[in-house]
């Protein structure tokens, strides 16, 4: 099903509808769809070294409280992140909380463009802009985010391309650090101390027994 590339967004008009993907049968993925329905990376957790296990499991089990953003900022940014990351149904990876925790502890990436404010301030300005534009009441939020990405909305005077990059860098770093996202994309996750033996091309030569097999079609009973 995925040998051909017809599903890739650049080769078609609009991205395919993810609700037509296989439903997750083991573990969780964001929105419970994915390409590896019988793969749960967390089932391998007992093979990880202890310090890694603690850090990764805490990411799943302990959702941090919102401390950096004010409640009204958090509310509108959550709606924005749902669109920007296509998290349109439960279960959702708690990206807002994960971003908030980084901004609260000041864990930045170590640089700031000379024409940009501190990263936290960029986020706050986005929240103000979204609130001023009534983002929560918009019928087509996706269209609004597209315009934001294309630099058609003011970001309170910020360089739109850089502001988009700051916000999305935080959002994606949070989302793809989460084991549910690894289940969705079939990433092997932490690999110490076990490592890898099978490194070849294709499912036969390139997949360990504990790595997920790619689904080739939907399950006619469970996915209907």
């Amino acid at each position: 099903m995925f040998r051909d590339a017809g599903h890739l967004p650049k080769l078609r008009d609009t991205p395919p509808d993810p609700t037509q993907l296989p439903r997750q049968r083991r573990g969780r993925t964001p929105q419970m769809h994915g390409r590896y329905p019988d793969y749960d990376v967390l089932e391998n957790a007992r093979h990880w070294d202890e310090t890694t296990r603690e850090v990764v499991l805490a990411r799943v089990n302990e959702v941090p409280p919102v401390r950096f953003f004010a409640p009204e900022e958090a509310e509108v940014l959550r709606l924005f992140l749902d669109v920007a990351l296509a998290q349109d149904a439960e279960p959702r990876i708690p990206v807002l909380e994960m971003v908030d925790a980084r901004l609260f502890t000041g864990e930045t990436d170590g640089y700031r463009y000379d024409d940009m404010p501190e990263d936290g301030e960029t986020w706050r300005r986005l929240a103000r802009q979204l609130r001023a534009d009534g983002f929560d009441r918009l019928a087509d939020r996706e269209e609004y985010v597209r315009a934001l990405h294309d630099g058609e909305h003011a970001w309170e005077g910020l360089n739109a391309e850089r502001a988009w990059s700051v916000v999305m860098r935080y959002a994606l770093s949070a989302f793809y650090s989460h084991p549910w996202a690894w289940n969705e994309i079939g990433f092997g996750g932490p690999a110490y101390p076990r490592g890898y033996m099978r490194m070849g091309v294709g499912d036969h030569r390139g997949r360990e027994p504990h790595e997920g097999a790619e689904a080739f079609e939907r399950d006619p009973v469970q996915d209907s």
């Binding site: 995925f2 599903h7 890739l8 967004p9 991205p15 395919p16 993810p18 993907l21 994915g34 390409r35 990351l85 296509a86 793809y176 996202a181 969705e184 994309i185 079939g186 990433f187 790619e214």
Partner: peptide
């Protein structure tokens, strides 16, 4: 998300 799912 679609390109990410195609990672492998």
């Amino acid at each position: 998300r679609e390109y990410m799912r195609d990672y492998n």
